[in-house]
């Protein structure tokens, strides 16, 4: 199985650092707007209807971009089925987010989701799961994970 690196931690070229950093900030703002919009949609309709509308909107946008870029040929060829399942998992991510946003608010949902994401990526790297480059957890990273876990606990208990 082809091994590849997903997590490019070091930054070899600081090309357009300011531009790319502002893009990252903008992207974060859009995520918060999106999670709020999806939560409101789930409240206005139902969880299940909102999932259909959200994915229809995304699918249409992605389809229009493919047509504009003239990349409409052989879209599904040569991909193992397992690697297509990311989109199926995405459904449950949105469902969980919609459930949480309407009960514990945007800040807590996004904060805790990030901690879950970082810890899961760390575990996948440590064991080399899902084709991620095997990279054992080094002891000097442990304080970082502890800080984040404490942050999550503070958010849950006193949030």
């Amino acid at each position: 199985m082809l091994k590849y690196r997903i997590f490019v931690y070091n930054c070899p070229v600081n090309r357009n650092l300011a531009k790319n950093s502002s893009l990252a900030l903008f992207s974060g703002i859009m995520i918060a707007v999106m999670v709020t919009a999806n939560g409101m949609l789930a409240k206005a309709s139902t969880h299940w209807v909102s999932l259909i509308i959200i994915h229809f909107a995304g699918l249409t946008t992605a389809g229009i971009v493919l047509v504009i870029r003239k990349e409409t040929r052989s879209i599904f060829n040569g991909v193992h089925f397992v690697f297509m399942l990311g989109g199926a998992l995405g459904v449950f991510t949105i469902l969980l987010n919609n459930l949480c946003v309407n009960n514990i608010g945007v800040t807590l949902t996004l904060g805790l989701a990030l901690v879950g994401q970082i810890i899961a990526s760390g575990i996948a790297e440590h064991f080399g799961w899902l084709g991620v480059t095997h990279k054992k957890l080094s002891i000097n990273k442990v304080p970082a994970y502890i800080l984040m876990a404490v942050g999550a606990a503070v958010m849950i208990v006193w949030g």
Binding site: I6, L89, L96, T109, A152
Partner: peptide, 14 residues
């Protein structure tokens, strides 16, 4: 919410 983050990590890898 934590579970949603785990979900995100797996989807990113796939």
């Amino acid at each position: 919410a934590l579970l949603s983050g785990v979900n995100v990590a797996i989807s990113i890898m796939l």
